[in-house]
Design a protein around this nucleic acid. Structure first.
Length: 270
DNA sequence: TACAATGTTTTAAG
DNA sequence: CCTTAAAACATTGT
């Protein structure tokens, strides 16, 4: 039997993964899997047939990816995209407008809902965990995520702005838009700086901030959605007229690496 | 109305 | 073959 090591990552994903824990060791009675974009590429008849009367055994998160293991050698991959959520409902609750996959059990239903359908479901039947799962890059808090590895990744993408590089899942699995901004702000690195131009001292700061931030985010948001520390950029970045928690400078916003980026023009030097 | 939104994939270009 | 940038995807809220 394959056991999934709980290697939690990106805080929101970890939080949502745990929402289905009430369904552990319980059998699925019916599967509601209407054809939709989130299920593109999935063998729907196989998914419906296999998950019906299967038991949820285990789950894990890796970066923004989740994997749920069922009996009958069934593996369900879930990516939340931009607007996806996992939650549970009473089993007699009707399917809601944007519910993309509903696994009904005796007491509860396990629901994946996603209005924009940027999320994605993967489904495999196999003795082993699927290949796409085994090939994911080292998690930020794993021993394989070393300073050297991170430095080499920044060099490899040396012409792109550091903000864009932090968003690349091959190097920073689980880092998203707010986390990237938070890392850069904490490390005092300007988001537009070329990844190849950051100093060795900056690389060390980025490394330690990336790891410590991930740990704290998992303990707060990832645990029960409590707020991260009050002095984080996180609390100011979406507000009009937001100011830097460190030096009170007005924050700046611009599109960098294709995403809205927030930074402090005073303490983040280019 | 028009645009932006916690993300990835595809396409095109360098 | 590799990296980078921009568009596309679908829906809602401001």
């Amino acid at each position: 039997m394959v056991t999934l090591k709980p290697m939690p990552e990106l805080a929101e994903v970890e939080y949502f993964r745990k929402q289905w824990n009430v369904g552990l060791a319980r059998k699925i009675s019916t599967v509601d899997a209407p054809a939709n974009r989130v299920l593109r590429g999935v063998d729907l008849p196989l998914l419906r047939r296999t998950l019906t009367r299967a038991t949820l055994l285990d789950s894990a998160a890796h970066g923004k990816q989740m994997l749920f293991r069922f009996s009958k050698n069934a593996w369900l991959g879930v990516h939340l995209g931009m607007t996806g959520k996992l939650h549970i409902t009473k089993n007699d609750a009707p399917t809601a407008k944007h519910d993309r996959l509903v696994l009904r059990q005796k007491e509860h239903s396990l629901v994946f809902t996603d209005p924009r359908q940027f999320g994605r479901i993967l489904f495999d039947v196999n003795r082993e965990a699927p290949a796409w799962w085994r090939r994911l890059p080292p998690q930020i808090l794993s021993p394989q995520f070393t300073l050297e590895r991170m430095g080499a990744f920044l060099k490899r993408h040396g012409r792109a702005p550091i903000k864009a590089v932090l968003l690349l899942q091959a190097g920073f699995p689980g880092v998203g838009n707010w986390m990237a901004d938070e890392i850069l702000w904490q490390a005092r690195v300007h988001p537009r700086k070329s990844a190849g131009a950051v100093t060795q001292a900056d690389v060390r700061k980025l490394y330690s901030r990336t790891r410590s931030m991930t740990r704290v985010a998992l303990r707060t948001i990832g645990n029960d959605w409590t707020d991260p520390p009050k002095n984080w950029l996180f609390h100011r970045r979406w507000r009009r007229g937001g100011i830097c928690p460190r030096d009170k400078s007005p924050l700046r916003h611009a599109t960098i690496g294709g995403r809205t980026t927030c930074w402090c023009p005073t303490c983040q030097k280019k």
